[in-house]
């Protein structure tokens, strides 16, 4: 099945981005395809390369970049990002900034859209 994932919460403060990651991990292991991952609302904070958690903690941003390096399309909403200071200069590798139209396209091209939020 082709899945897209929408993340609405920032990392560490809320379980949503961990749950989204674990869901994607499990879906890929079962042979599903991830069409795209879209970050909206505070979810855009998942994309800052300046995130630097303690070494004994999981590195949430790096995990996203690793998925991006595998060829999964990770998109940050430009309007939500601008509000929160997430620009191309602070963007972690293999994640891109684009518009909400990308979310519309992801939904169109997927069998399911799964939202992770509060």
């Amino acid at each position: 099945m082709k899945l897209s994932v929408l993340v609405l919460e920032g990392p560490y403060n809320h379980q949503a981005s961990d749950s989204a990651y674990n869901f994607i991990h499990a879906a890929l292991a079962k042979g599903h395809t991830i069409q795209g991952i879209f970050f909206y609302d505070d979810g855009v904070y998942n994309a800052t390369k300046f995130s630097d958690p303690p070494q004994d903690d999981r590195h949430i941003v790096k995990r996203w970049s690793e998925l991006g390096a595998k060829g999964i399309d990770l998109v940050v909403c430009v309007a939500a990002a601008k509000r929160r200071g997430i620009t191309d200069e602070v963007l972690a590798p293999d994640i891109r900034i684009s518009g909400l139209g990308q979310l519309a396209s992801m939904i169109d091209e997927s069998d399911r859209i799964v939202t992770f939020g509060d």
């Binding site: 609405l8 909206y40 139209g101 979310l103 519309a104 169109d108 939020g117 509060d118």
Partner: peptide, 25 residues
């Protein structure tokens, strides 16, 4: 699903509605 002013969800949901409508969904 959330109250309008204590968080940004309703506001950013409206942005999504506008874009989705413009994509002729």
């Amino acid at each position: 699903r959330k109250a309008p002013h204590g968080s940004i969800y309703a506001q950013e949901a409206i942005e999504v509605m506008f874009i989705f409508a413009s994509y002729d969904m």
